[in-house]
Amino acid sequence: MEESRQKLIGENGLRIDGRKPDELRPIRMEVGLLANADGSAYIEQGKSKIIVAVYGPREVHPKHLGLSDRAIVRCRYHMAPFSTQERKSPAPSRREIELSKIIREAFEPVIFSEYYPRSMIDIFIEVLQSDGGTRCAGITAASLALADAGIPLRDLVASCAVGKVEGCLIVDLNDEEDKEGEADMPVAYIPALDTVSLLQMDGQLTEEEFVEALKMAKEACMRIYQMQKQALKQKYVEAKEAVEEQE
């Protein structure tokens, strides 16, 4: 069994899907695809597919949850029952409850919530297909949805995981690399503040590996950040082209 298992890093130094250690999966982002939401975004990162909607700022319901000096942020990270190999129960799992909390905390520092007292901003992240890195891709897409909703942000949040497989540090793990690998460290980064708003780790890393992994995470997040800005602009380029065509 052990012998027949496919090696995660080939002899040529490439990963099972042919990527170099510091190479991201193909990423496609789309902004403003849902008609009802105030802001929305969709991301495909490798085989992971996630859709995010943002509602708000809107009235708090029930009212007593509101804060008199700022808006509250509500966040739900949820996986569709059909997003995984085995059907996932639609009821929120303990993992989803924890992730909803830390994703909310990753966004609190960038939202100018003090502009909207007694109101709330809702972030709904739905994982439609899961192939590793869904909390990070979810954060990347949720940033776009918040921006699309016109909510004032200090910056976009870009997110990517770094991990270790077979002794080699790699970025943007897919599901197999996450499950079989020796470590997984999701990071969310705010370029304008040069700070980290989400950091988790499981597995085992030495001090040197940890330092290197953080560096790789920052670089990967910066590449995702450029793509995010491009995706936001693209929506308006398309709108402009549509208008010009009509004229």
Binding site: I102, E105, M185, L198, Q200, Q204
Partner: peptide, 9 residues
């Protein structure tokens, strides 16, 4: 002395 878990909250 290896890091085995991190949580920022």
């Amino acid at each position: 002395g290896k890091i085995c878990a991190i949580q920022k909250s």
